[in-house]
Each structure stands twice: as C-alpha cells, then as structure tokens.
C-alpha cells in the first residue's frame, strides 16, 4: 500500500511504484472520481481528452498519477520511493474558486483535538486570522 494525501484526506491506495507512480484505472477512479474511457478521462458527462497518452497510460494499461493529474485539473507530487503522493486542485482551478469569493469550507482541530468548521459560524461575520509561532 501507499499513501496519497488527497487534498485534506490521507488515503491508502494500491499502486505500482518504480520510477513512476502507476495505478490500476479502478484505483485511480476511486481516488479522483475520474474514469478512463476511450474518449478520455470522464466524470459524469464531462470527458477530458488525453493528449500525451503514452505518458498518462503505461504499456500495460496502468495510469501514471503524475501525468494523469493535469488532465483532470489536479496538481500532483509523487514520491514513489517513499510511497507518498499528494494531490490538490490545479492552480487554475484553485484560482477560479478564489475569484468566486465563496469562502472555502475547512475543518481543522482545535487545541482539544475537536473539529472546528467554518460552517459552525454560519450567520456570523468571521475574521480568519492566519498566524504562526515562527
């Protein structure tokens, strides 16, 4: 097994790791919600064409996570040697979300370890104060 930090979640996945991070199409689909079809990577009724098919799909039909990520609007960093990868929205998709001005939801632990979410403050004005001890 290997670990993918999928946005805010840590997910254990099956992967074939050498110099690349390869996954069975079903495992890739479970991770990202995108499914490999003849017309490209598809989710619901949207399909994204695959331009560099030899990079995205290996000779034995596995999906290369690093190269498939940009096809479906994700950024990816893979470290096959340490069996860890991280995925998040690509820069253009995050930028689109930002300019919509909808405050992104988040859930983080307080000092007692209890989850706190933005939506706990519905109908309040919120000042997010980002700070650090460093």
């Amino acid at each position: 097994m290997a670990t993918v930090i999928n946005d805010t979640e840590h997910v254990e996945v099956e992967a074939v790791l050498d110099s690349r991070w390869l996954m069975q199409p079903a495992a890739f689909s479970a991770l990202t919600g995108w499914t490999l079809k003849p017309e490209g990577m598809c989710r619901e009724d949207v399909c994204a064409p695959i331009y560099h098919r030899d990079q995205v799909i290996s000779a034995d039909g596995l999906i290369d996570l690093q190269h498939a990520a940009p096809v479906v609007g994700l950024s990816a960093v893979v470290d096959p040697e340490r069996r860890v990868a991280a995925l998040a929205a690509s820069a253009p998709i995050r930028a689109q979300e930002m300019i919509s001005l909808a405050a992104p939801e988040f859930t983080l632990a307080n000092l007692s370890g209890d989850p706190v979410s933005l939506h706990d403050f519905d109908r309040r004005k919120v000042l997010l104060l980002a700070w650090s001890s460093w």
């Binding site: 706190v116 004005k125 919120v126 980002a130 001890s133």
Partner: peptide, 8 residues
Amino acid sequence: LSIIAVAI
C-alpha cells in the same frame, strides 16, 4: 464577529 485564529 467571530475570530478564528488559524495557526499555520
């Protein structure tokens, strides 16, 4: 107002 201090 609620201040949420997010420690990065």
